[in-house]
Design a binder for these strands. Sequence first.
DNA 1: ATATGAATAT
DNA 2: TATATTCATA
Length: 444
Amino acid sequence: MQYSLIAPRHVGIYIFGMLAVSPLRCSNDERQGEMESCPDGVGDFSDVFPGGNLLDGIDFDDLFVGIEDGDVLPDLEMDPELLAEFSVSGCSGGEESAEKNASASVGKVEGNDSGRREDEEEGKSWASGLVSSSCQTEENQEILSKREEAVAVNPPPKVADKGRKSSTQPKASQGKRKVKVDWTPDLHRRFVQAVEQLGVDKAVPSRILEVMGIDCLTRHNIASHLQKYRSHRKHLLAREAEAASWSQRRQMHGGAGGGSKRDHMNPWLKHVPTMGFPPPTPLQPFRPLHVWGHPSPTVDHSVMHMWPKHLVPSPPPPWAPPPPDPYWHPHHQRVPTALAPGTPCFQQPLATTRFPTPPVRGIPPHPHAMYKLDKGSGFPTAQSDYSHHPLDLHPSKESIDAAIGDILSKPWQPLPIGLKPPSLDSVLVELQLQGISKIPPNCA
DNA sequence: ATATGAATAT
DNA sequence: TATATTCATA
């Protein structure tokens, strides 16, 4: 069940408000049939406030904001007729199962009541109390549902109601509250599809909206998401460029196969197999299906498989899945390293045969694959902070010393993705074998 | 007048 | 943090 943290909280808030003024509630009473949003957790406080303490979960500021809004509490008295009307007016009130259909939960009641400045969602974001509305794609597949809270109840404008902006209706009753779109994986997938179909360069909000064909979304929703998408893409491209540059430098200097003269001169190049590194493009092991960016048109979905349950590491080895992209989708991957059994995965590209085991120390195959060794357990933990500089492939003596000091004192280890990192001990042994004496005392 | 996108707010 | 809103401008 996917919630934005905001949504259920506010829902709870208004439920709380309702409880104070009205017996109307989402529970096993006679309203159950109409309040179809209940099964989704709206009425389940244990869902909303896992801690079990209702009061703790309430943001009274928001509550007061809602009350000040003036139309919140009165509207808590919902007219069953409106609900009925709601349910037949195109958006089903039923809740889809969260794991099957992406549902965009919608939470926040907008405080801004000032004059309408928007256009296209006029008449779309009519609200209803504590019900879920859902949007469907052209294929009639339920993709997005906006859950609206206890807000002003306004019947959806009927088709003939095109002449909106009836200036006679000022604002408050216009039920125009915008809702927060939860960009679920499914929704995002459609977004990316649309963007790619249009071409990344030509993809502008309005066109994307068209292509996506989800009329619950507004151009602004898209624009906001697009902004983030582009930002991420930029980030990603920079990373790949950097990785490619590393790869290139390695090729230029490393030479093939057995050590070159250079290898003798540079202890950090010893034992470095030339082809021993993953491709610059981070093909991550246990790659989750939904990642930001492009939906990998090159990925053959026929090789996609369900990771055998009995092979799913439990707990997953810390070195196996580097954070998919900590910059990007933490929301839907709250536990990036935890792989639920049955999670569809792309198979790791032959880590044991294509890449050396054990891995080579000291030279980053990918500048951002950083780990640090836990001195207690000896296990590495993934580093999501990209600010650490990778080691220079061909460092001067000084930079070697600096790097050693840096690595061992932190100690951050740049490692090939998907490979088991060396233990701290083995690093120290290696350094000693190489006659490197400058091991910071705090690492011994 | 309106769509866009960066900046900023929530 | 993710998404919404504002704001400058094209």
